[in-house]
Design a protein around this nucleic acid. Structure first.
Lengths: 197, 197, 197, 197
DNA sequence: TATGAATGAGCATTCATTCAT
DNA sequence: CATGAATGAATGCTCATTCAT
C-alpha cells in the first residue's frame, strides 16, 4: 500500500533538514536574526522559501534550532575532552582551542551566540535556548576550569567569571576574524593567558 | 524681532538633536540596526516618531550619526592622550582604559560598532563610516602602539593587528558586560597583557 | 489477467471518492469554503492531501461536487415524493420534513448551501451549481406548493417565494441546531405553518 | 507646544474609525471572515491597507469590533423598547420588527453573526464576543418573551428556545434577502406566529 | 516645531497544487 | 494508487517615511 517512508526517505529528509540548518547558520551568523530573511536562507540552501517552512515552522524556530546545534556541538566537545586521558589543564586547552578555532563554522557558531545575546528583548524561546547554553556549556566549562585550578594549573578566581571572560574574548576575536578575514589570529597561548596560573 | 532667530534657536535644536542621538545610541546598542524601530528611539527620546525625521532624514543616517559620534569621541580621546606629558606606554594605558571603561555609554559605543560590523552587507554609508573608524581610531591607536613598541614598553608584533586584537577583546568584554550586568570585569591589567612587552 | 481491471477497481475508486466527498461535506459544512483546508478534508477522510487531488482536481471542484450531491439528494427526494400515492399536501409535508430533518447529514447539506450562497462573489462554477439548485430543487418544490395550493391545502401566495421562505427558515434552524446542539428543534408543524392554508 | 489632539482631531479619528468599521461590516457580511481580505475592507473604506491596521491591530480584532457593534445596537434597541409605554407583546413586536428589518444594515448585522457562528473553530476572542451576544441580546430577548408569556400574549414554551428559534428564522430570512435581493419578504406577522400565543 | 494620520514596500507565513518516488 | 516534498501565489502585518494640520 503506502510506500512507507523507508529509512532511505527518512534519511533524505534529515539530510535536507541539515542543509537548511547549515544555510541558516551561515545567514544568521552574517546578518543576525532580524536582518536575515527567510528567502536569504532559502537561496543559500538552494530551495524555495516555502520549503524552509516545511522543515521549520517559523524563522524563530529555525534560529533556535541553529543555537541548539551550537550547544550540542560544544557539549559533545566537552564530553570528548573529559574522556581524554590527559591532565585537567590540557583538557581546558583542548576545549578552548577547538571552540576558538578559526574555521568558518566555529566562527559562525560563536557569532550566532553573539547575535542572540545582543538581540535586546529576545523572544522567550531564544531566551530559553540561551539558558540551555549556560547550563550545558558555560557550567561544564566552569567545572573544567575549577578542576584545573585545583591542580594549580589555572589562574585563581571565580571559575564562572573566568569562563565568561574567556568566552567573551573568544567571541570578540571571532567577530574580528569575520570582519577582517585576512588578519592573523592571536595565538591560542595569548588568549589562554587569561586562564593560566 | 531678533536679528536672526539663530543663536538660541539653533542651540535648542542642537540640544534636541543630541537627545535623539543619545536615545538612538541606547536603542541601537540594545537591538542592533535592523531590530531597532524608529518609534523605539522616539519613545526613548520622549518625542513623536515623526519628529525624529526632522533631525535625521532616515534611520540609516541616524545609525551613521551614532557611529560618527563614537568615532569623534575616541578621536578626541586619543588627541587628549597625545597632549599629555606622559610616556608612550602610559598614553596607551590611558586610552585603553577609557575606551574599555565599564560605563554604560562606553559599552554602548563599543556594542554599536559590533552591530555595525556584524551587519552582513551593510549599506554604503555605514561601510564608509566603518572606514572612517579605521582611519580615525584604529590607525592612531596603531601609531600609539608602535611608539610604545619603540620605547620597548609594548609587545612586539604588527601594530595594526595588535590594535585590532585589543579592540576585539574589549568589544567581547563589553558585550559580556551588557548581557551579564552583575559580573565582575577583568581588571584592565589583564587585557593590557595583550599589548605589554 | 482480468479482461479489464475495471469492475472491482472502478468500484473501489468510487467508494474512495464517496469517502472524500463525505469528509469534504463535513468539513465544508463546519468551516465554509475559504476556511476549509484541503488537508483538513484529507485528515477527515484518513488519506494524504495529495490523494484528494486524484479524485477532485481542485478544492473548488470538490466544493461543487459536494453541492451537487446535495442537489441530487433533494432531487431524488422530490421524485420519491411524487411517486407516492398520497395527497399533494402530504407530499409537501414529506419533502419538507426530510429536508429539515435534524440528522447531521441533512444539516450539513443545508449549511453548505448557506455557505455557498453567502460566499460573496462565488466563482463561476459555484454560481452554476447554485443555479442548478434553483432549477432542480427550488422549482420542483415550488411546483409541489403550487399543486397543494390548487387543492386548497397550501397557503396562497407566489409559490416561488413561499418555497424560498421555507428554505430560508429551514436553513436558519439548521444553523441554530449546529451551533446549539442540545437545543430542542421547533416541531415540523410550526415551520409548516408558513405553507399551510 | 504639542498641538494637543483637540476635540476636533479626536472626532475626526473617531469618524474614520467608524468608516473602517462600516466598510468591514459590509465586507464581512458579504464574504465571511476567512474570505474577506483586509485589502477588500481598505478599498471599501477608500483607504490603504496599512491604515486599517492603524485603527484595528488585526483582522480578527476588526471582526470582533464589528460583532460588538451589532451587539450594542441590539442592546440599545431592547433598552429602547423597555422604555416604551406599551404592552409586553408590543415591545416584542417592536424589537423583532426592527431586528428583522429588511434594511441593508440590519441584514448585515444578522449575516455577520451567522458567519461568526458558522465559522467552525472560531478563535477565542470571537467566541467571547458570541458569548456576549448570548448575555446581552439573547437573554434580554428571552426575558421579553417571558414577560409577554405572563400576560398570555406570547406562545408557551421555554423562552430561551423560542428566542433562539426566532433569531434562527430571522437570520435565515436575512440570508435569503441578501441572495435574492428582489424577493418579497414574508410579512412580520408571519414570523411572529412563531412567538404568538 | 511637533504630531500622528496615511501610504506602500517588504517580509513571514499559509496553503492549493504539482510531481517525483 | 499513495505519499509528502516542493513550489509560489496570495495575504496579514510591520514599519520607515511623508505630509497635512
Amino acid at each position: 500500500m503506502s510506500p512507507r517512508p523507508t529509512a532511505r526517505v527518512e534519511q533524505l529528509r534529515e539530510e535536507r533538514r541539515r542543509d537548511v540548518l547549515g544555510a541558516a547558520r551561515r545567514v544568521f551568523a552574517r546578518k543576525g536574526f532580524a536582518a536575515a530573511k527567510i528567502s536569504d536562507i532559502a537561496s543559500a540552501a538552494g530551495i524555495s522559501h516555502g520549503l524552509v517552512h516545511h522543515y521549520f515552522p517559523t524563522k524563530e524556530a529555525l534560529f533556535v534550532a541553529v543555537i541548539e546545534e551550537s550547544i550540542h556541538g560544544w557539549e559533545a566537545l566537552i564530553a570528548r575532552a573529559r574522556a581524554m586521558p590527559i591532565s585537567e589543564w590540557e583538557r581546558l586547552v583542548y576545549v578552548c582551542s577547538i571552540m576558538g578555532e578559526s574555521s568558518v563554522e566555529a566562527s559562525e557558531h560563536l557569532r550566532i551566540i553573539v547575535h542572540a545575546s545582543m538581540g535586546g528583548d529576545a523572544p522567550q524561546p531564544v531566551r530559553e535556548a540561551l539558558d540551555r547554553l549556560e547550563r550545558h556549556v558555560h557550567e561544564p566549562l566552569s567545572s573544567l576550569i575549577e578542576e584545573a585550578q585545583r591542580t594549580g594549573a589555572a589562574a585563581a578566581g571565580p571559575p564562572g567569571e573566568l569562563a565568561r571572560a574567556w568566552m567573551a574574548v573568544t567571541q570578540g576575536l571571532a567577530i574580528n576574524q569575520a570582519v577582517h578575514p585576512g588578519m592573523a589570529r592571536p595565538p591560542i597561548e595569548l588568549v589562554l593567558r587569561l586562564l593560566k596560573a
